[in-house]
Design a protein around this nucleic acid. Sequence first.
DNA 1: ATGCTATTTTACCAATAAGCCAAATATGAA
DNA 2: TTCATATTTGGCTTATTGGTAAAATAGCAT
Lengths: 102, 102
Amino acid sequence: MVPEKYNVQAEIIKALAHPSRLYIVSELAKREICVCDLTEMVGADISTISKHLLVLKNAGIVSTRKEGTQIFYKLLCPCILDFVSCIANVARKNAETSMKGV
Amino acid sequence: MVPEKYNVQAEIIKALAHPSRLYIVSELAKREICVCDLTEMVGADISTISKHLLVLKNAGIVSTRKEGTQIFYKLLCPCILDFVSCIANVARKNAETSMKGV
DNA sequence: ATGCTATTTTACCAATAAGCCAAATATGAA
DNA sequence: TTCATATTTGGCTTATTGGTAAAATAGCAT
């Protein structure tokens, strides 16, 4: 009963629904970054980061560029940032609401 | 190493990262809908829908209004729609790319 | 009170996702 | 070639999620 397009969209959203991946995307919005730098920034095992990046790539959110032994990732769709700001807005509202004890 | 705000945001995004919930949110963007109608629309067990709605409510995405024995859900943040359109855009680009066999 | 409808909660199972280690692969340097 | 660095992949364990059925809860009518 759920139209097919929501399956497709949910797949993409799922790729963003993880703290590390969201952080990675936000940083990639500023500049290209290689896996080793992202690994340092996130502070997890490099294999974990590699898998996160694969998820983002499969979702069509990032692309890669090889330079020597390094692989640089970059953000494909800047509109992702608008989306993040919307979510940040919801988060802010939630914080306000819970402060009021509502 | 990942700033706390990404944990908060990822929680909200996670709530949207499911086909049924995304469909529900899209429909709630048009009008208030009660649980029983949503159940019909999605075509799943009512307990499943109820859980999905709880997820959306906990994320601060929807609110409820009781009317007799029915409970109506409505969308709290219209900006969610912009976000969905961004995702739809990514999905469209992905489809184009895979068509070209890239 | 009883019954009827709408909704949520609980309990349980199956499927998926996240994490790390170790092994494999790739590139460039010596 | 061998070595070192960068990255991906496979395997494994643990934790989370999605689904349904059954029980519990709530509101309204009789």
